[in-house]
């Protein structure tokens, strides 16, 4: 027995005296290596906390607690419309990002507009391109439909009432922005539908006194349609609206989380 005090923290010796399989030994050695550098042990509490959070018991809903299911189960699909809008939004975001790789928002000088030609190329030449555009378009259509129906569900079940006014107003803004998303989106192919819808948009903004001309300049890049219009619609569709709408959806869902779902009684 030596007089020298043993190092209690000699992990190597501790590892050597244990009989471990190869997998266990490799695992422990890498764990010790990482822990020496990043002190994982300090974050164990966080991990533990996370573990218990994901293993929470969901509280029984009002309808389950008071056994009202016999009256209400057939309404339940309508209570999923909000999440369906979010799922459709995510599908549209992913397919839209892929479409953005191949689309160019340009009208060009002669011949067919470049925007139109790129979409023709996506649909005819690109592998899976036809399906990609189809997915994007249907996701958009379904999202708008789901948002409308979601609003009707909220209205007819009285879920918008005090104390949920703020979320209703955010919802109305989100509905308007969803339609704006759709509008800026279907202007992008620069086909007949797009052009004349844009024409209506310009006429609408020009009809407003005082700020009308300024709005037309800002949103449509002039009083007649052309390259500036297309480019602005593109930036609105792929840059401005995604950020705004995503942030608003996060707030909207966060408020639902805080206030709880307004269940029927």
């Amino acid at each position: 027995m030596s007089l020298e005090r043993k190092d209690e923290h000699d992990h190597g010796a501790w590892l050597a005296e244990k009989e471990l399989s190869l997998i266990e030994k490799t695992y422990l050695m890498s764990l010790i290596w990482l822990d020496k550098r990043f002190r994982i042990v300090d974050y164990l509490e966080l991990l533990e906390d996370m573990y218990y959070k994901i293993n929470l018991q969901m509280p029984k809903s009002h309808t389950e607690q008071y056994n009202l299911d016999n009256k209400f189960w057939y309404w339940y699909p309508l209570y999923a419309l909000g999440s369906f809008s979010v799922i459709a939004y995510l599908v549209a975001a992913v397919s839209g990002a892929l479409l953005g790789f191949y689309y160019a928002p340009a009208t060009g000088t002669d011949g067919d507009p470049i925007a139109y030609e790129t979409i023709v190329a996506i649909m005819k030449d690109l592998n899976f391109g036809f399906m990609l555009r189809s997915i994007h378009r249907w996701a958009a259509q379904v999202m708008v439909a789901a948002v409308f129906l979601h609003m009707l569900r909220v209205y007819f079940t009285g879920a918008y009432k005090e104390p949920r006014e703020v979320n209703w107003i955010i919802g109305v803004i989100l509905l308007s922005l969803t339609m704006l998303f759709g509008y800026t989106g279907y202007l992008l192919p620069w086909n007949q539908l797009a052009f004349w819808a844009g024409q209506i948009g310009v006429e609408m903004s020009l009809a407003v006194p005082i700020v009308g001309e300024w709005t037309a300049q800002l949103l449509f890049g002039g009083f007649s349609l052309g390259q500036p219009t297309l480019q602005r619609m593109y930036i609105l569709h792929v840059f401005v609206l995604p950020f705004v709408v995503t942030a608003l959806i996060a707030i909207h869902i966060g408020i639902v989380w805080m206030q709880g779902i307004a269940e029927p009684h």
Binding site: Y116, M131, S134, W138, N191, Q192
Partner: peptide, 15 residues
């Protein structure tokens, strides 16, 4: 839905 009902791309814009 996307596979069954593909979207239509109309005529090119013509002012």
């Amino acid at each position: 839905l996307s596979a069954m009902l593909p979207p239509h791309l109309g005529d090119v814009a013509n002012p």
